[in-house]
Every structure is written in structure tokens, then in C-alpha cells.
Design a protein around this nucleic acid. Structure first.
Lengths: 236, 236
DNA sequence: TTATTTTTTACTGTATACAAGTTGTATTTT
DNA sequence: AAAATACAACTTGTATACAGTAAAAAATAA
């Protein structure tokens, strides 16, 4: 493993992506050029090029004369998200079922094994990343350059939303996760059978499940704790 | 009009975009960093940042250790294009009808006036750019960050395909252009009336018209010229 | 002449120094 | 004391010089 600048650049890129997807860098966080260039042994020039690229892909917000910032997730985001996601993902899976190659299907099966493994023994970040990888592969399968920009943008926030998703706190949520995994298996089967209709149908079901899971967070069960013993911690 | 680096950078960006959209830079063209930095009075550092950004937006293809290249339009592109465009544009117009502000509608009307003016007296490039502007505005109106990446990617190739589109060679094609303008008016009306269904319907019709126009190019009328006087130019 | 290796040339990628701009703090003014 | 201004520290943006890499040209061998 040589340590040339090129590899450090891709290292940096990967590190930033993963950090953002897993909420290690929270939405709205300012990125310090000096610190990062120091950390990865890169000068600011290539670093800023990476920033620009990640900006274009939707990971970062760039503002002139101000530091790059991890892209925000506002309250309107969630609504826009569930408006666009089913349509885009439905189209992607339909095309995946139409166009997937055998090699791609093998990759997808491998990714699904990794996902299952993460569900069993991984952290929330591991699960979110494994799920992200699975869906990225379906995007590649669709092979439509006009669909992918939006699809990949969706995947970013899907992972970030999923970071809470993949930290199940109730039996119902754990159950939903198992269901998501089952759906992944069904998606693979539909793609392998070139069954476009089934794939599109599964896309919709997969998003409905996601939405249900989100709602379990937005509207949690009422607390059942005696007064004075509330688990709320002190204000930060 | 001050001439600071910041404005030169946006100048360069705008110049590249317009040049690509109007086919002044053909798909696949290599861009010369030294030449462009000389031309715009910018060093290569900010120039390369612009390249990265345009790469992210789909104007350029970037390859390591090779020059940046105007993004290609292959034979598969057209098929992918007409597969994705109606769906995305339908969703965009539906949301535009739902969310457009009065100020945005005014902007759209202004853009449509410019489009009509370009149809009357402009060049093919003027027409393609005016049309591009019109649709960009509908994208802004939709206000959905997850839809816009694909939508803007579509607009790039829409303009490039349209450069032939907007150089009408038969009466039928001129007629189609007038029809496109009429559809723009109808789109404005639907948005102004918050009529989502009508807007979505118009999106589909607008793309059908585009597809018809393309077909007039792909399958031109049989030549009616005596042998030996064929207008075909010599092979390049 | 043809194929292969070496050298040259041109271009891409990176580091560093410097210029311009922004933000926070201290000082002055009312 | 509050507001406004001026200054200082820091961050972002740009230019230039240099290092690394790929293609082209020249030279050598078959």
C-alpha cells in the first residue's frame, strides 16, 4: 500500500463521505481546511478540489469566503425526501431489473450478505453504510446517467436519516429492520428474474417501510416514568 | 463592472456552460487548462476548481492525469434521456404548480418573452439558451433539492439536443417550434392556476413534441436531389 | 523498414507563499 | 453604558514554482 498523494486524496474523499453519511460530521458542521490538510498530509489545493467535488455531489454546501459546511437537513427536507424517493427509486429498480448484468447481481448479493452481517453484529454506522452500499449498487445497475444524480443525492440523506433508523429502540423497530432485509432479498430476486413490475412494487414497499420507521421516531411512545425520575439529562 | 478574480471565475464558469450547452464546445472536446487560464486571467488553481464543480454538475468528464473533457453524448444517451425526462419533468412541473411564488411566476413570464423573441430573431444558440432558462426556472419553482440534480443534468443534454432542434429545416419543424412556445404559455397558466394535473399533463406533451422533433432529424425526408448534386459535404 | 527502447516534451497534480476577505476584540466616541 | 470604529488574528482565495505522469519523438536493434 503506497502512500502517494493520489491515494491520500481518495482516502480523504472516502473519509469525508463516510463521516457525513454516518453523522460523525453533523449537518451544518464547518470543515477546517487547515486541520484536514494536516490530518491527511495534503496541501490545501487538492483538498479544496475535493470539497468542490463533494459540493457538486451534495455532501457539502460551499459558500464563497466562508468555510465549507456539511449539507443541511432542514425540516422541509424530510417532506421533499419522501416525495421524490419512491418515484426515483421505483424507476431505478425497474431499470435495474431490465439491465443488470450477472456480475452486478453477484456484487449485490455480496453487499446483502454484508448488510445482514451488520444487522447481526454491527454498529448503527455499519448498518447504514452497508444499506447505502446495497442501494448504490442498484443505482449502478440501472445505468441511467440522468437518474443517478438525484438517486445518489437521495442516498446521502437516506443514510443520514437511517442512522437513527438503524439504532432500533423498540421491538417494532427491530422487526422493521428484519423486514427491510427480507425486502432486499426480494429485490435481488426480482432483478435476477428481470421482473420489472415486481422490482418497482418492491421499491414502493421499501420506502413505505422506511417512512413507517421514521414515524416511530417522530412520534415515540409516551413516556411511562414517575415524575422526578425522568431520564432527561442536564441541558448541554 | 469591476474585474476582480471572483467575477472572472464566474465569467469563466458561465462561458464554459454556455459554450457546452450551445455545442460551441462539442461533446468529447478536451479543454486546455493553460489556454483558458490565459484567456480569463486566472491561474490554474481556481480554474481547476471550476472544472471540478462543472464535473459534478455533469458538464465535464474528469479523468485523473488527463485533460477535462466535455461530457459525451453517446448513442445510448438519447434513449436514457427520453426514458428519464418525462418522469422527472412531470414531477418538477407538478411541484412547480404547487409551490411557485408570484415573483417566480413573473420571472418565468419574462423568460418566456425572451424565448419568443429568440424564436423570432435569434440564432439557434439564442433559442436553445432561452428555452434552457425557461426550464431552469420551472426547476427552481419545484424547490425540491432531490429532484433538481437529475433535472439540471437533463437540461444540459436537452439544450445540446435542442441545438439541432432549434435550427428548423422543414415547415413541419418550424411548426413544432411554434407549438413548443404555445406549450410554454400553457405551462405558465397551469402553474399560475396551481393546477398540478394540468402541469403534469403538459410536461408529458412537451416531451412528446421534443421526441417528435428529434425523429424528424433521425429520419429525415428522403432526399429529392439529382445524383451528383447531393448536398452532402466531403468526409471530414 | 519495422519493432522496441530511450529520451524529450507537454501537461496534470501538488505544495507553498502571498493577497484578499472575514470575524472577533479592543478602543474611541457619543 | 451602548454604539461605532479601528485594529488584529485568522481563514479563504489565488498565483507561481515544482514534482509526477503520460504521450510523442528520437534513437537503437532486429
Amino acid at each position: 500500500m503506497k502512500d502517494d498523494p493520489k491515494s491520500r486524496k481518495t482516502d480523504l474523499m472516502e473519509h469525508l463521505k463516510v463521516s457525513i453519511l454516518t453523522l460523525r460530521f453533523q449537518p451544518g458542521t464547518d470543515l477546517d481546511e487547515a486541520l484536514l490538510s494536516d490530518e491527511f498530509g495534503l496541501s490545501r489545493t487538492p483538498l479544496r478540489e475535493v470539497f468542490r467535488q463533494l459540493g457538486g455531489e451534495g455532501y457539502l454546501d460551499l459558500r464563497t469566503n466562508r468555510s465549507a459546511r456539511v449539507s443541511e437537513m432542514s425540516h422541509t427536507t424530510l417532506r421533499d425526501f419522501f416525495l421524490a424517493a419512491p418515484m426515483i427509486y421505483g424507476a431505478v429498480l425497474r431499470l435495474a431489473a431490465r439491465n443488470a448484468t450477472l456480475a452486478q447481481i453477484e456484487d449485490l448479493k455480496t453487499a446483502q450478505l454484508a448488510f445482514k452481517s451488520a444487522l447481526r453484529s454491527g454498529s448503527a454506522a455499519d448498518r447504514a453504510l452497508a444499506n447505502n452500499r446495497f442501494h448504490e449498487l442498484t443505482g449502478e445497475m440501472s445505468g441511467n446517467v440522468y437518474l443517478l444524480p438525484s438517486f445518489n443525492r437521495l442516498l446521502i440523506d437516506h443514510a443520514r436519516i437511517g442512522m437513527t433508523f438503524y439504532r432500533p429502540q423498540t421491538a417494532k423497530m427491530t422487526e422493521n429492520l428484519a423486514e427491510a432485509s427480507t425486502q432486499h432479498d426480494a429485490i435481488i430476486a426480482a432483478i435476477e428474474a428481470n421482473d420489472e413490475a415486481a422490482a418497482a412494487q418492491l421499491a414502493e414497499e421499501h420506502w413505505n417501510l422506511s417512512r413507517d420507521q421514521i414515524e416511530l421516531f417522530v412520534m415515540p411512545d409516551a413516556l411511562d416514568v414517575p415524575l422526578g425520575l425522568s431520564p432527561l439529562s442536564k441541558p448541554a
